[in-house]
């Protein structure tokens, strides 16, 4: 097989530079809704950054701005040195729900971005098959989404994002809709997968534990209007296992984030 399209080939992560990014929505009655206060984030290539915050803090807004599917109000976003004005070709997105097209087979769903970008389908079919095998869905290429479980569907959605060989992978609470046990497995699998490709990841979540487990860096966002409260570098060795969660460092990071949420009134002690 062509080494260029091998699934485990390392991807070239891109850097992301966000400066003074804001987003103001117009509400129905004409008022301004500040969804995002000036936010600046610099991400180096190959970094796994988790952004954790309460519901409605603007973290999903931030992601859609970086994805280029929603216009920003002010500020700049540079991906790989290029200003984001439309969806950047080196970016793949995984959404909260799998958003698989029910009328397409698994393989056709994965190849959707290839079709849209007008790339050579046959060339990427091998890569799609590799990705499927890697997420444990080897024999499922010709199945329809309705034949898969929730966890399997989200795996397919991840394959669909990775088939475009994105230098930056954006994930918007990708495991939020899954049950706790499936989620546990997905988190661990995502780590394995990411360690094999090592691209840049922006991972949005509302789970503190998920963030600390997966990320090199955790950015904590405060309630609306969103801004970054702390920037935590997670120094726990990879690959991390469930046992890592018992390490004192892990607990320390979790405590730190908890304390911020308490200070901001997101979490209260009864």
């Amino acid at each position: 097989m062509n080494a260029l399209v091998g699934a485990t080939r390392k991807l070239k992560g891109v850097d992301v530079a966000i400066t003074n990014l804001t987003k103001i929505y117009q509400t129905r009655d004409g008022n301004d809704l500040r969804a995002l206060d000036p936010v600046s984030i610099a991400i180096t290539p190959g970094q796994f950054v988790a952004i954790v915050g309460p519901s409605g803090c603007g973290k999903s807004t931030l992601l859609s701005l970086v994805a280029g599917i929603s216009p920003r109000t002010s500020g700049t976003i540079l991906i790989d040195g290029q200003e984001v004005r439309r969806p950047h070709p080196k970016v793949g997105v995984v959404f909260q729900t799998d958003l698989l097209l029910y009328w397409r087979t698994v393989i056709d769903n994965i190849l959707l971005p290839i079709e849209i970008k007008g790339w050579d389908r046959t060339r990427y079919t091998a890569r799609a098959d590799d990705l499927l095998a890697q997420v444990g869905l080897g024999g499922f290429a010709q199945k329809f989404p309705s034949e898969l479980s929730g966890g399997m569907r989200q795996r397919v959605a991840i394959c669909r994002a990775l088939v475009q060989e994105p230098g930056l992978l954006l994930m918007d609470e990708p495991f939020g809709a899954l049950d706790a046990l499936t989620r546990e497995q997905m988190i661990s699998d995502l780590q394995t997968m990411w360690l094999s490709v090592k691209n840049t990841v922006m991972f949005i979540t509302h789970s503190i534990e998920e963030a600390v487990f997966l990320a090199d860096r955790v950015l904590v966002m405060s309630p609306r209007p969103g801004r970054i409260d702390i920037d935590l570098h997670i120094q726990i060795e990879r690959p991390r296992s469930w046992k890592s969660r018992l390490e004192s460092k892990f607990v320390e990071y979790m405590t730190q984030i908890h304390e911020i949420f308490e200070a901001r009134g997101v979490l209260t002690n009864s």
Binding site: F95, L112, I116, Q164
Partner: peptide, 22 residues
């Protein structure tokens, strides 16, 4: 589902592609 539109937009789809594919 508006998410589907966001999905193909994020892949760089224009409106014609969005129409035909989704």
């Amino acid at each position: 589902d508006k998410g589907m539109v966001d999905l193909v937009r994020s892949m760089g789809a224009n409106e014609w592609q969005t129409f035909i594919k989704i």
